[in-house]
């Protein structure tokens, strides 16, 4: 096993020794259908999870609206729902792009495309996440300003909102790292390796 021809011989002998029975159309299509269903379900599961996180984040703003501005809350909730619709749309298309990446190009093309999609998803996620947090905070502060005026209590609430936004940014980055950066970095390393001479 000390030269490449011996290795090639071992490789081809092994391949020749393995009986490869013919594929059955029904079983093959059952696999394809199962994978397609699993792929669709991953898209909806992730979307549901993301929207549940945003719903939890905006719950505070809705409670403040209902409690402090009973006459304005329908408008506030309508704005939040509109925002949810837009957020859901962005998330849906980004998650679907990640699931439906086309792999028939060269390895280099596929790696580049996949890295681009992951980067695009990470950027969209952070933007949507921060806009949800920021607009919820702004809604709370506007509501409180109209009820209390801008006094010490309002400043306290503003400080709490800023802290929440900073914490959310850090936790959002951590989530990105955990979910996507490892995979993106791994693909990047393979791409760099492929391009290195």
């Amino acid at each position: 096993m000390t030269d490449i021809e011996t290795l090639r011989q071992v490789w081809q002998e092994q391949e020749g020794a393995d009986a490869v029975p013919p594929l059955m159309r029904e079983a093959l299509m059952a696999i394809v259908e199962k994978r397609a269903r699993a792929s669709r379900s991953r898209v909806t599961q992730r979307l549901r999870r993301e929207l549940a996180i945003y719903a939890a984040m905006t719950a505070g703003a809705i409670i403040v609206l209902v409690a402090k501005a009973p006459s304005d809350w329908p408008l506030g909730i309508a704005l939040l729902l509109m925002f949810f619709g837009a957020t859901g749309g962005v998330m849906f298309f980004k998650i679907r792009a990640l699931q439906q990446v086309q792999l028939e190009g060269t390895l280099r093309d596929s790696l580049t495309r996949m890295i681009g999609i992951i980067n695009g998803w990470m950027t969209s996620y952070m933007i949507v996440y921060m806009v949800v947090i920021g607009s919820s905070g702004a809604l709370v502060l506007v509501t409180l300003a109209r009820k209390w005026g801008i006094g010490p209590l309002w400043w306290l609430a503003a400080a709490a909102c800023v802290s929440l936004i900073l914490w959310s940014y850090t936790s959002g980055r951590q989530y990105m790292r955990r979910e996507f950066e490892g995979h993106r970095d791994e693909l990047q390393r393979v791409l760099e390796d492929l391009e290195a001479v």
């Binding site: 990446v101 792999l103 028939e104 190009g105 060269t106 390895l107 596929s110 996949m114 995979h183 791994e186």
Partner: peptide, 12 residues
Amino acid sequence: RIAVNTAVTLLR
């Protein structure tokens, strides 16, 4: 192409 791309980019 598809098999290698799947193995390298997607399986993880």
